[in-house]
Amino acid sequence: MRIAIRRPFPPGGRNGIQSRGRGQPAAGGGVRTRVETTGGGGSGGGAAAPARRGDGRWTVLEVVAWIAGDLARRGVSSPRLDAELLVGHALGTSRVGLYVRHDAPLTEAERAAVREALRRRRAGEPVAYITGHREFWSVDLRVDRRVLVPRPETEVLVEEAFAALADEAAPWRVVDVGTGCGAIAAVVAKHRPAARVTALDVSAEALAVARENVTRLGLAERVDLCEAEGAAWLAARPSSFDAVLANLPYVATGEFPGLQVEVREHEPRGALDGGPDGLREIRRVVPAAAAALRPGGFLGLEIGADQGEAVVALCAAAGLVAPAVRRDYAGLCRVVTARRAS
């Protein structure tokens, strides 16, 4: 079978994708590449952020610069971004706010908060867990250790979904399988205001986070949250949906030792582990999604970089048509799309 591989639009392109600094994924970036460890370098594992220089207190930007240097020495791939987010969180301000008060000295309480945030980051904890927030498609989401950190790569799946659900006023019926913190469900509901979205997850803890997000965003009336196993739930609802979107576990079990420390040791393994070949859940969901779609309906799946051919074959075996592989902005195969025949 010939696989269609579609190149991404340029960074900053359509549907709200914003170009990101090289460090953006480090607050919870792609899980397929080991890009950082935070235990080495510097002066051991303690978090002795600067308190004084001579007889003067450190200013906001001096502390940011010092932390950025410390994280860079420890191999963090986005030291400046991480430093700004950590200091902003400790001071209760935004990254822009740091520059507004760039020359203000830190109080002792502020220095203590900065030291605690730095201690946690040095231990490999994702920035998003420390701050409790992550932006996804310009939506601010609450996150913690109960859910995966939303990643920029998943915005490629959302972009494909919006291309398929082009009519913004249509009453689309959409399912988000493996919703986690509710990122995909919330963004679809926000940008397709007549749509009805069902968000599924097997984890009650993850659904509690998703519920907090959709409620805070004013979307609770149009996003239904359901604790259910995706394949079985879809199979029981034939020809019911215009789109099924799924970011399922796709990391092969044997790949875990090679993951980033922040992923391997901090994020929920159940949301990552896709079995021996990474396709255990995808293999179950594809035929169920094919049955649940209405004629002409759209299936979008996030995948691992080496899984495109296998997932396209699964779609074809389920009777779906026009399977295609979409690359992310790093040039890696990241999303498979297909449709039910009209």
Rank of each mutant, 00 (worst) to 15 (best):
A4E: 12
P10N: 03
G12E: 06
G29M: 10
V31Q: 07
E36M: 14
T38G: 15
G41R: 11
S43Y: 12
A49P: 08
R53Q: 12
W66V: 11
L71V: 09
R74E: 05
R74W: 10
S78W: 07
A83Q: 06
V87A: 07
R95D: 05
H102M: 13
A112T: 14
R115P: 00
E116C: 00
R119N: 00
R121M: 10
E125L: 04
E135P: 00
D140N: 10
L141A: 06
L141K: 04
V149I: 12
V158T: 10
A163N: 03
A164N: 07
D167Y: 05
G180N: 08
V188L: 15
D201M: 08
D201N: 09
E205Q: 13
A208E: 15
R222G: 06
E229R: 14
A243G: 05
V244C: 02
Y250D: 02
V251E: 03
L259K: 05
G275F: 11
G275W: 08
R280A: 15
E281A: 13
R283L: 00
V285A: 01
A289W: 03
A289C: 05
R294T: 13
L299F: 07
E309G: 00
L320E: 05
P323M: 07
D328R: 04
C333F: 00
V336S: 02
S342E: 13
S342V: 08
